[in-house]
Computed example of a mutant assay.
Amino acid sequence: MISSLSRTQKTGAGLLLLLVAYAIFGPMLQNGDATAQDLNHILTPPNSEFWLGTDHFGRNMWIRLADALQLSLMMAALCVLTSAVIGVTAGVLAATGGRWLDRGLDALVTMILALPGLVLVLIFAAIVPGSFWMLYVAISLIQWIEYFRVSRAITQRLTRSPEVQSSKLMGFGQWYIFRRHYWPAIAPQLFTIAAFGAANAILMMASLGFVYVGIQPPLAELGLMIVEHFPYYSDAPWLLAQPLLLLALVVLACHLMGRGRTQ
């Protein structure tokens, strides 16, 4: 698996592993709570006690950024997993389940695409502001479509292949045909979709933080932190730069991993 990745993809994977390590182990390296306020240390620059300084409420930025990154990575992982399972399942069923099922699923996709993805996520987020799980459902509802389209197109092509026809004539069931013929052709295409889907999920959640319908304070979320820190860009520019840089790095890592595979 690793040997089949290009140098660019390996760079992205290495960067992502570093970010995951910081998100998991970062809070263990400093004592404290991401939501604990200390008004005696407001806007403290980075020093030996507070490695990344403190925010406008005296909260430890090292811990808050790690918590925010944990939230973003969790959202990305859940959305990718859910969207892939739903999209691949629906795509294979649409290609093999008959004309009416194919038309029905295609109509559902058309209805979802009638609204821009971010607008649809915004509508769901506005129903229950601050709900992580509502954001997860909304983003997954948008992202499964890409998996559906790819899986459907590949499966439709393979259903007419001699290999699949031979398996059917020999009496093999649909599960065997999926494992033997469909999945090996679909799986390589999912890596790129998943990488870009993870980046889009993180950006969508951050974008909702800009309009205050995403994750709510005092929880740490990269988009919300950028908005909260913006008024202090002149007094503490490092405070605004940190969530911006972290957001850029995690999206960059996903995009690098999404580059085409080597042959």
Rank of each mutant, 00 (worst) to 15 (best):
L245A: 15
R180W: 06
L190H: 03
V80G: 02
I42L: 08
L244V: 14
V119E: 08
L203I: 13
R149Y: 09
R64I: 08
W175Y: 07
F132S: 02
L18C: 13
I154W: 06
A236V: 10
L17E: 06
V211M: 06
I145L: 07
A21E: 02
M28L: 15
V109Q: 09
L222Y: 08
G104T: 05
A248V: 09
Q37R: 06
P129Q: 03
C79V: 15
T155M: 01
A195Q: 00
A13M: 14
G91F: 10
L108D: 01
P231Y: 08
A76W: 10
V213A: 02
N200G: 11
Q143L: 11
I177T: 02
W133C: 07
W62N: 03
R64E: 09
P45A: 00
A23H: 03
R59G: 02
M111D: 00
L158H: 05
P27L: 13
I2F: 12
R157H: 12
L43G: 04
T159Q: 13
R7M: 13
A248G: 11
R157W: 00
G58Y: 01
A194V: 03
S48L: 12
L101I: 15
I24R: 09
Q242F: 12
S161R: 08
M1P: 07
A21S: 12
S83F: 07
L16C: 08
Q70S: 10
S72V: 11
F132A: 08
A195M: 01
L93P: 00
Q263F: 12
A66V: 10
A138D: 05
L39H: 10
S83E: 11
T262F: 07
A187F: 02
A34L: 05
T89E: 02
S83K: 05
Y232C: 03
L5P: 04
G97S: 09
N200C: 08
Q30Y: 08
R180C: 01
A23D: 01
H41K: 13
L208C: 12
G117M: 07
N60P: 01
L15D: 03
N40K: 04
N40W: 02
A21M: 11
L18V: 14
V250Y: 04
H181P: 01
N60V: 04
L101H: 04
S166L: 15
R160N: 15
I154F: 08
L256N: 04
V92S: 04
P45C: 03
R149F: 09
L135C: 06
